[in-house]
């Protein structure tokens, strides 16, 4: 059985490596490394840009803005100038401060609509900065407590690596195994395997092993040039390994129901996109509805982030989830392959 496994594994590895898609993945890897290292700034901000126009004689807003580290180019000299710069930047707001007869007023100019909660937050933040100038220097009776020491801020360019890893390495296994399966169907080699002593178990394990190996290799090639060696490599490899297994088996189970890529394309891409939705939560952490957290890539992406940029959070849940999910994925895949793929036409 071991000999059969290694025979099939070697064959699958050679076929996978000769696939045009491999070269595309390599090309994508180079582009990703270059983009992370050279294109995305380390201090890139996704949030709204604030521009200020202080109409008041006292200039409190301007002073507060400078104290908070805003550049001169964010501080406008007139209302038309402020309106122009805000109009040009879709992702910005303008803050106009007036103080006639000690009655401070702020006008926020913005694009589209802002929810009531977010309006109140903006107002609270501005008020918080300006209160000291109106004699409210006392600190509220509020304590801040950390469950763990505050984590080091992660440069934004490196912050992009965990989701890229998850999709290029892991979710690609979902697509690549489908591609290989359809190639086998097209060539008729799957029929030849069916009349060999191989069996569904070895077939399924061999495919997953190939993509786990490729995934690990690819993952290391992505992470080392972009982040370096300052992370727990063993944990990293374990997550990549199990992540690849899960998605390869799920990919194979789905692909087994289709005859060729054209039939698979839309369902396959739809499932891939669903598995990419945790990226929204990664970029906008406030958005994390319950259904999103059940997608397997969700704990994987955040687990990878914790491994690459440790903040002290426990990974126990992740390391319980991964082998269990892999087992479930294996069982589903095995049953589908056995009853569908290995019995087609009977």
């Amino acid at each position: 059985m071991i000999r059969r496994f290694f025979a099939l594994f070697s064959q699958d590895l050679v076929i996978a490596s000769r696939n045009a898609l491999m070269w595309v993945l390599l090309g994508a890897l180079i582009i990703i490394i270059l983009t992370v290292r050279l294109v995305i700034p380390a201090d890139f901000e996704m949030g709204e840009t604030q521009y200020f126009y202080d109409k008041s004689a006292q200039g409190y807003l301007e002073t507060a803005a400078r104290l908070e580290g805003f550049d001169q180019e964010r501080i406008m000299g007139s209302l038309p100038e402020l309106e122009q710069v805000v109009a040009a930047d879709q992702n910005s707001i303008g803050i106009i401060f007036e103080d006639d007869e000690a009655v401070p007023r702020v006008t926020i100019i913005h694009h589209g609509a802002i929810s009531l909660e977010n309006r109140n937050l903006i107002a609270a933040a501005i008020e918080d900065s300006l209160r000291p100038y109106y004699g409210f220097s006392g600190q509220p009776d509020l304590q801040v407590s950390y469950l763990r020491p505050a984590a080091e801020k992660v440069p934004q360019n490196q912050n992009a690596v965990p989701p890229l890893l998850a999709f290029e390495v892991i979710v690609n296994g979902f697509m690549m195994v489908a591609v290989l399966l359809f190639q086998e169907k097209m060539e008729g080699t799957i029929k030849a395997y069916r009349v060999s002593p191989g069996g569904p178990s070895i077939y399924v394990i061999s495919k997953a092993a190939v993509f786990a190996l490729i995934g690990i290799f690819y993952g290391l090639l992505m992470v080392i040039p972009t982040i370096g060696f300052s992370f727990n490599i063993l944990l990293f490899l374990i997550v990549l390994f199990f992540g690849s297994l899960i998605y390869t088996w799920l990919g194979l189970a789905v692909a087994a129901f289709f005859n060729n890529i054209s039939e698979w394309l839309f369902i396959g891409i739809a499932l891939l996109m669903i598995n990419m939705t945790p990226v929204i939560s990664y970029g906008w952490p406030s958005f994390a509805p319950r259904w999103l957290t059940y997608i397997p890539s969700y704990p994987i992406i955040f687990g990878l982030r914790e491994i690459l940029f440790p903040s002290g959070r426990s990974l126990a849940e992740l390391f319980i989830f991964l082998p269990l999910a892999a087992l479930v994925a294996y069982l589903v895949c095995y049953l589908v392959v056995k009853n569908k793929l290995m019995r087609e036409g009977r």
Partner: peptide, 11 residues
């Protein structure tokens, strides 16, 4: 609160 706020959408 000490400051009054107004909101104006550009578009």
């Amino acid at each position: 609160t000490i400051i009054s706020f107004e909101y104006r959408s550009l578009d």
